[in-house]
Simulated scan of single mutants.
Amino acid sequence: MDHKQLKYFLALAETLHFGRASEQCHISAPTLSRQIKQLEKELNIALFIRDNRSVSLTAQGKAFVEYARSSLAQWRQFKSECQDNGQPLSGELSFYCSVTATYSFVYDLFAKFRQQYPAIELNLNTGDPALSITHVLNDKEDLAVAVKPAQLPQGTSYLPIGQSQLVIVAPIMACPLTELLSSQQSNNIQWSQLPFIMPEQGILKDRLDQFCKTQAFTPRVYAHVSGHEAMVALASLGFGVACVPEIVLAQSPFKDQVRYLSSLDLIEPIEIGLVCKTKRLTDPVVTVLWETAENLFRL
């Protein structure tokens, strides 16, 4: 097997969709299918269960995910360590963050990094920030922007890069929720009467759960949503109120379609930082990005 096949396998294992995986790998779906079949033939096991409508991992396929991620991470580190010191540092780096973080933190970091290390290939993946640390721990990504948890997992390193207040927002448009809020006093909001757009998981959910406990009410949940940006969109449409980082709201195209409720000082702010496995800092490519961030984000 070669490292490209491992990359193809991981793309399909993540998406469980030949079309999306082939687009992600910049190859055709038939080419991806052939590469997976070759890999299965070499291993003499079935990695996926396929039918006309779905793709799923076999038990052996699930076990092979960890091997593939670990092998690719070790290969990247080995290549970095074997480079000639007289040549520009090169290699590959995978990075995970939310869409908002690409505007707020990552753009400036990547701009400075690309200027100093143009031969290093940066692979940026975006998604729910609640998954950032999990992706790093599972070797899915080298580094990630994450909200700092109450306790960092053992074996991880953390570099603070910013903070954000958490705010509760409500729609401006005419709708039943707006009418309900207009009948209440701004300094005495009846939270138990309001529908909430809730985050599915992560520190934001923990903060909101603590807010509900402090205010002594059980929230009426309209929907659980993955991703802070989507929560702002649903709140702007009047489906419910949403608790989101102020930094997300500042970048949202819907920021002018929502308003703050009077709870800005009732929820503990979040701290945002860069996370990676501590052992990955022995990789020169990971180290130089970490050092670039240290110099850029001096809090």
Rank of each mutant, 00 (worst) to 15 (best):
L124M: 14
G162V: 12
R114N: 12
H224E: 05
S183L: 08
P129H: 14
E179V: 09
N138A: 14
L177R: 09
S132W: 00
L122E: 11
N138Y: 07
V225F: 00
S132V: 06
A111L: 14
A223F: 03
I203G: 02
L137F: 05
G227L: 01
F211A: 03
S132E: 03
S132C: 09
N138K: 15
W191M: 02
L181Q: 01
F196G: 00
Q184L: 02
V136D: 00
I120C: 13
Q190G: 03
Q151I: 13
D128Q: 13
R114S: 14
Q190F: 02
G202C: 08
Q116P: 09
F217M: 00
Q165G: 10
L181R: 02
P149F: 02
K213V: 06
Q190K: 08
Y158S: 02
Q210A: 13
M173G: 05
K112H: 15
P176W: 08
W191T: 05
Q210E: 02
L180F: 03
D206C: 06
L180D: 06
L137H: 04
S157R: 12
K205L: 14
E141G: 03
A144C: 13
I203V: 15
Q185D: 07
V169D: 02
P171I: 08
L166E: 06
Q163K: 14
E141T: 15
I197A: 00
V225H: 04
L180H: 01
P176E: 10
S164T: 15
Y117I: 12
I189L: 04
I168F: 07
L131G: 07
T156K: 01
L152Y: 08
K148Q: 12
K112C: 10
P195E: 05
S157F: 02
K213E: 05
L166C: 12
T134K: 12
V167I: 15
L166Q: 11
P176V: 05
L131P: 03
K148A: 10
C212I: 01
L159M: 08
A223G: 03
A130M: 11
Y158L: 12
N187G: 02
V147W: 12
G227N: 01
N138I: 07
E200C: 12
Q201M: 08
T214E: 10
F211Q: 05
A111M: 13
E179W: 01
L194A: 05
H224K: 06
A223K: 12
P129G: 10
A119T: 14
F196Y: 06
V167Q: 12
Q193R: 05
L166H: 11
A111C: 07
G202D: 01
R220C: 00
G202H: 04
H135K: 13
P195Q: 09
L194H: 03
S182G: 01
M198K: 04
V225P: 06
